[in-house]
């Protein structure tokens, strides 16, 4: 199974339900043959999960990754997304048309 890295901001005051989001994300990635890891050095890509739009965890901190998706609350790479669609959209971002 391939692995995708995940990094959390710390979740001090999230605008989204991170538990629910993670459940959906895991299911979606599993269906594509991927699993999540916090051991990000070995991962295929990286999902940065910021609980709110402030986005404390910045993309620039992970410059060595080619394939990064940044969630800032209910938005992906600054584009507002329906919270229930976040997991789906992340998969699209990471794997393009292959999912």
């Amino acid at each position: 199974m391939k692995i995708v890295g995940i990094k959390y901001c710390g979740e001090c005051n999230p605008e989204i339900d991170i538990g629910d989001f993670m459940k959906r994300l895991k299911l979606r990635l599993n269906s594509l043959g991927f699993t999540l890891t916090t051991d990000i050095d070995k991962s295929y890509g990286l999902i940065i999960v910021n609980g709110c739009r402030v986005g404390c965890l910045k993309r620039e901190k992970f410059a060595n990754f080619e394939n990064i998706v940044v969630i800032n609350g209910a938005s992906i790479d600054s584009v507002i997304v329906d919270e229930s669609k976040l997991a789906e959209k992340i998969a699209e971002k990471l794997f393009g048309g292959n999912c």
Partner: peptide, 14 residues
């Protein structure tokens, strides 16, 4: 300080 970028790149306040 808790502002963030909008899609245009311009920063918005919290």
């Amino acid at each position: 300080a808790e502002g963030f970028p909008t899609p245009s790149g311009a920063y918005f306040v919290n």
